[in-house]
């Protein structure tokens, strides 16, 4: 918060910058290396760039991209909901809830995702009929597994349940990063636990949760290729492999898939940037947050921050008498 009126800003100093020859040298070296790499890629006939270009826009490939996106976002969305529940259960004072959460995380982190996906795919073989009822007692509602758990749902559930175990730990770390004083202040205002979590603690935890979750999303994008274990055969990797094998040109089709993954990852990274900015509002002097509130440059640490950070104020009865 600079109080100086803008009309009185002093003329900034004009000085020659420090020479930085290292930058020029490194730029030249990198340029040469990049040129070599591009040359090696473009001029090598084995890559068949004409085939790459042709199949980059192929209907089956684009549909594969669509399914990959559906699996990625679908499973991440479900996983995030589960993870928040698991993290809250893990912190609850109900020992049953804590135990369930612990077991869930232990199991889904402890077994390979590939194995889990195979089992989800086999569910309709292992349990041809699913029923709701009292264990060992009467059944109220029965249906054929195949009708409900299709390959798509098996893939989605398999990915989501596995991911939820990892995300739960991320959410838990996020929740513990929030000053307990926040929940306490909300409690003192008469807010109930659910509201405190949703309105006060979670939004602040998001600052810690979003970056690793973005990372997990990008990782999930490529983990979706494992759903051939189910088997679910419409997503990008399977589709491009199938085409590659059919036309006996696997390498150009691998490049097609790689280019699509790179493109999606780039878009995800941009999205992550904006999410991080949104959840960082209020924490960096309010530079962010959709235009509400005054903006300023990066805030300089103030005396009050130092008093707070020193942690000396907690129990010192004589602090206030300092002149």
């Amino acid at each position: 918060m600079e109080d100086r009126p803008s009309g009185q800003l002093p003329e900034p100093l004009h000085a020659r910058p420090v020479p930085r020859p290292g930058r020029w040298v490194s730029a030249v070296v990198v340029l040469v290396l990049v040129a070599m790499a591009v040359n090696a890629l473009v001029t090598n006939p084995n890559f068949r760039w004409d085939t790459v270009w042709l199949y980059l826009r192929d209907v089956v490939v684009v549909r594969g991209v669509g399914w990959t996106l559906v699996l990625t976002f679908g499973s991440m969305a479900l996983a995030i909901v589960l993870a928040v529940m698991l993290a809250v259960m893990r912190r609850s004072d109900n020992p049953v809830m804590r135990g369930v959460s612990w077991f869930w995380i232990w199991f889904f982190r402890g077994t390979p995702i590939y194995t889990q996906l195979v089992f989800w795919g086999l569910l309709s073989v292992l349990y041809p009929r699913l029923s709701l009822g009292i264990p060992f007692g009467p059944e109220f509602w029965t249906f054929t597994t195949q009708d409900v758990i299709t390959a798509f749902w098996a893939a989605l559930l398999g990915l989501a349940l596995n991911e939820s175990a990892y995300l739960a730990e991320i959410v838990r770390a996020g929740l513990s990063s929030v000053d307990p004083g926040q929940a306490e202040a909300a409690k003192a205002l008469g807010m109930k636990d659910g509201k405190i979590l949703r309105r006060i603690v979670l939004p602040q935890a998001m600052r810690v949760i979003v970056p690793p979750t973005g990372n997990e999303t990008i990782s999930m994008l490529k983990t979706t290729s494992l759903v051939l274990a189910v088997p679910f055969t419409l997503e990008l990797t399977y589709a491009t492999n199938a085409i590659g094998n059919r036309i006996f040109q696997p390498i150009p089709l691998l490049i097609v898939a790689a280019l699509w993954y790179l493109l999606i990852t780039s878009v995800l990274m941009i999205g992550q940037h904006y999410l991080e900015r949104y959840y960082g509002r209020g924490f960096d002097g309010g530079r962010t947050g959709g235009g509400r509130g005054p903006r300023g440059g990066r805030r300089k640490p103030r005396k009050q921050d130092l008093i707070g950070a020193s942690g000396t104020t907690k129990d010192d009865p004589f602090l206030e008498v300092t002149p």
Partner: peptide, 19 residues
Amino acid sequence: AKQRSRIGMVFQRFHLFPH
């Protein structure tokens, strides 16, 4: 929570909601 809502509390370290 309802009982608490009738009592205001001010803390040493403010505890304003930073977001």
